[in-house]
């Protein structure tokens, strides 16, 4: 097990390195640069000076090697080039990560139980009116992206009805001011979990072991809870992580819509203004958290499912 985890962690570092390299080159090879929009106000000397300060006067591969050297020798990931000039990127990120994580986890915390409840309901009432209603909503919520939801909620609930603040407001309790963005982020994961659990549960409800549970004298409720539901929750763990990752992706745009000072907002802004180092750092962060989440699931999956935990140990 330890060997497996070490192997996976090594894999994560390789992926991070590849992502970093690809991002580094892609950003810099794109048209435009850090002086877009201000270029004409600067003299040629000024421009050269700025480029030289950030090593941008050198060929791109040399820039890359210098960047790597900075990381290896001083753990120096660079400073913000445009948004918060000369502030270290990790300082910028560290300030913003908590609220983004707060949004993500809160949304997940809401989605998982609601998704499980709806999925169970739909599977138990399969092909009934409840199931059709739930399935209709599932299709709706899976198809509508979170930023559309966010805009809609912002317009109706916040602007028209005035129930919640229109944009993020530091002076209000966090739960009130982030209610709408969290809600907007939750629709898709709820729908994903519902759909998945409905399929899993209706399969295990029809399984032989469910029939055996009933023939051995368990009530329908006992058999459903102890056998069918319990077994179908195991694979659901598998979709929770992709759901979390997609929440993270959704929060990129949703944070901008609600003006939340989180990582998503700054990532989008840094891309827009070509603040290379901030973009790169947040990209690394997103990659890391996604890979870590996947690793976590793979490990926990082994803990939950004995067939995987003991795989290959037949006579254990």
């Amino acid at each position: 097990m330890a060997k497996y985890i070490l192997k996976r962690i090594a894999g994560i570092f390789i992926v991070l390195f590849v992502v970093m390299t690809a991002a580094f080159f892609m950003m810099r090879l794109m048209p435009g640069g850090i002086l877009d929009g201000v270029e004409e106000n600067l003299s040629a000397d000024m421009r050269d000076l700025i480029y030289a300060k950030y090593d941008m006067d050198k060929p791109i591969w040399e820039q890359y090697l210098l960047f790597l050297k900075g990381i290896v020798t001083e753990w120096d990931w660079g400073v913000s080039l445009k948004l918060y000039v000369n502030v270290s990127v990790w300082d910028i990120l560290a300030e913003r990560i908590p609220i983004t994580l707060y949004l993500g986890f809160l949304s997940l915390l809401i989605s998982v139980p609601i998704g499980i409840a709806f999925g169970t309901l739909a599977a138990l009432k399969k092909n009934g009116i409840v199931d059709h209603a739930v399935s209709f909503l599932v299709v709706l919520f899976i198809s509508i992206p979170s930023f559309v939801m966010a805009t809609g909620l912002q317009y109706f609930v916040a602007y028209k009805w005035g129930w919640f603040p229109l944009i993020y407001d530091d002076s209000l309790p966090r739960i009130t001011t982030t209610f709408l963005p969290v809600l907007a982020l939750s629709f898709t994961p709820i729908a994903t979990i519902t759909r998945y659990l409905r399929a899993e549960l209706s399969e295990s409800l029809n399984s032989d072991y469910m029939l055996l549970a009933r023939t051995k004298g368990l009530t329908r409720v006992q058999a459903t809870l102890r056998h069918a539901l319990r077994n179908s929750l195991v694979p659901v763990v598998n979709v929770i992580v992709p759901a979390f990752i997609s929440i993270m992706g959704g929060s990129l745009v949703v944070e901008s819509i609600f003006g939340i000072p989180g990582l998503g907002g700054i990532t989008v802004r840094s891309i827009n203004v070509a603040d290379y180092s901030v973009t790169l750092a947040s990209l690394i962060y997103y990659t890391l958290i996604s890979l870590a989440a996947i690793l976590l699931v793979d490990i926990s999956y082994g803990l939950i499912d004995p067939r995987i935990r003991m795989g290959g140990r037949k006579d254990a």
Partner: peptide, 8 residues
């Protein structure tokens, strides 16, 4: 093979 609950 299918009558027993595989994870219990």
């Amino acid at each position: 093979l299918s009558a027993l609950n595989p994870i219990q």
